[in-house]
Design a protein around this nucleic acid. Structure first.
Lengths: 128, 128
DNA sequence: TTCAGTTGTTCTGAAAATAAGAACTATTGA
DNA sequence: TCAATAGTTCTTATTTTCAGAACAACTGAA
């Protein structure tokens, strides 16, 4: 088992962050970690739609977040402690993560609302 | 030639935006369009490192930005007019795009600086 | 008109990234 | 020592992305 890789703060890139957070499961995981600022296990996470995600896939997702510099993972016995690196990143890119997390929350709230009121999700895209 | 597809504002997703801006060429293009808020041709764009990008690839990049909802493209004779949709998006996700653009600028400035002072880009990642 | 030049799109095959089952590693507690 | 738990790595199938080649749409000149 090879050691966990964490980029130095100056090697964290905007593109890397964007890419890591371009996956619905990964933003959800990261939002969880960043908001609660508590650990969050790797293998137990059911996505937004409550479908179980294979643990190999989750492991890869955590790896992506880690190697993008968004979280810091530390082995704690058999489990993993995952903490967000928001503080560090906010010094380098002020306001970036708060803005993304806030947008994510806005979108989630809107989705929950439309799910409750039963509005059909409009897939229609305006063609010109 | 099929019509250009633009998502309605309520169909623009954070993940979609993140994904579109997770590519160095695409952020660069988008930053250009958003900053200058002027058109920006599709086929003439040399990336950050000044290497020419094939026009088919550029066309795809513009398509990605368009379908993520970040830009609005309109055929103007033989050319294309590309405008950012920052205004609309800022109403739905306040502060998101400004934060990303600002982070992108910070990173670019830092890169230019290290390129000038010749500091070797440290790829080293702290292994634990 | 017709034709060449320009701008951008679409098609296509190769290369790269992602997803998830299966096998494996590491740690703990009985 | 062994079973249980938490994660990782290997591997293959699928999906995305890249970029050359062919194509489509418009313009301006002959």
């Amino acid at each position: 088992m090879r050691p966990l890789v964490h980029p130095a703060i100056e090697d964290i890139s905007v593109e890397g962050i964007m890419h890591a957070l371009s996956d619905p499961v990964r933003v959800a995981i990261f939002a969880d970690i960043a908001m609660s600022n508590c650990s969050q296990n790797c293998t137990s996470f059911s996505s937004v739609e409550d479908k179980a995600i294979p643990k190999s896939t989750l492991s890869q997702h955590f790896k992506s977040l880690r190697e993008a510099g968004l979280i810091r993972s530390e082995r704690l016995g058999v489990e993993m402690q995952n903490l967000s690196r928001c503080g560090e990143i906010d010094k380098r890119f002020p306001g970036l993560l708060p803005a993304i997390l806030s947008a994510h929350k806005i979108q989630n709230d809107a989705r929950q609302h439309t799910a409750k009121t039963g509005r059909k999700k409009s897939i229609r895209a305006v063609a010109k």
